[in-house]
């Protein structure tokens, strides 16, 4: 079986090239960057792929709030000559047990669509959001992240900690209630948390926690672990020369961000 990855582009998405490259390096035999107009025209269907990437960017400029107008398009825009919406294909994709990764703007999109945390397989109810950083600013900086070994997330498997860049103005993770937060914690939805260099404890300290996310949450998955979203950019660290300290110390040729994509690939190869 060929493992097939799709990366949706258009309307302000801008990390599609490097995300596609990550998929390619991870081993995916088919990697397609597909402009959203091709989904809306019905030319291309999500069904044909195993791994959906919702890449970083500024959907519609984040004009109505991060990814809000994008969410609106996924939920309401009709496919050509049809009453179907992209959301219908998305829900089918999920029920087929396929993988979705949302990075930065893609994470914002997933959360606001309700794909995450997706309690009890309800993927249409928004329970959490990502809002303005406490600093009120967009920031580009590298952060230390600690993975949760108890999370079902298939993307962070065998990752203890990872150093990646964040590049966002709206990355503060917030829930609608304490119950939701408790549930996210107890059900191990938390996959990645901001921490200090030692990668021991989650940190609420700025700039280690760059946005003030509750419980230092940087990424969460659904109950199955097949849907995952995170604010940091693994696709921006595919090669050692991306690392801010590569001129200071010797690092493995392959960037640590690639591991997430390799995990996705292995999962697909194993589970067909």
């Amino acid at each position: 079986m060929q493992a097939k990855a799709i990366i949706i582009s258009g309307n302000g998405t801008n990390c599609e090239t490097e995300t596609a490259y990550a998929c390619k390096l991870a081993g995916f035999e088919v990697v397609d960057i597909v402009h959203i107009s091709k989904l809306l025209s019905g030319e291309i269907r999500l069904d044909d792929y195993h791994f959906l990437n919702l890449a970083g960017g500024f959907l519609d400029g984040d004009d109505l709030g991060a990814a809000k107008a994008g969410v609106n398009r996924f939920l309401h825009a009709r496919l050509e000559n049809s009453q179907d919406k992209i959301e219908d294909q998305l829900l089918k994709f999920i029920s087929d047990g396929k993988l979705i990764l949302g990075i930065c703007n893609g994470f914002q999109l997933m959360v606001k669509l309700g794909l995450l945390p997706g309690f009890k397989n309800n993927y249409t109810k928004q329970k959490t959001t990502l809002t303005f950083n406490d600093s009120g600013r967009f920031e580009n900086r590298w952060v230390y992240l600690k993975a949760n070994p108890d999370s079902p997330c298939i993307f962070t498997k065998n990752i203890h900690s990872i150093y990646l860049p964040v590049r966002h103005g709206e990355g503060k993770f917030v829930t609608d209630s304490n119950e939701t937060l408790e549930k996210i914690k107890s059900k191990q939805h938390i996959s990645l948390q901001y921490c200090e260099e030692d990668c021991l404890e989650p940190s609420m300290k700025y700039p280690y926690n760059p946005n003030g996310s509750v419980d230092a949450i940087a990424g969460i998955c659904d109950e199955s672990g097949l849907l995952f979203g995170l604010m940091p950019h693994p696709e921006a660290y595919l090669h050692y020369t991306n690392h801010p300290h590569w001129t200071r110390k010797s690092l493995p040729e392959e960037g640590a961000g690639l591991k997430l994509f390799k995990n996705a690939f292995s999962y697909i190869k194993k589970h067909g």
């Binding site: 990390c15 600013r137 580009n140 590049r167 921006a236 595919l238 801010p244 200071r248």
Partner: peptide
């Protein structure tokens, strides 16, 4: 100013505007 500009999108960054032990 530098931090508020995305200097790494496209994944091509090799020498960044802020460098050194503490970036």
């Amino acid at each position: 100013v530098v931090r508020q500009y995305d200097h790494e999108v496209q994944g091509t960054s090799v020498i960044k505007p802020l460098v050194g032990k503490f970036n």
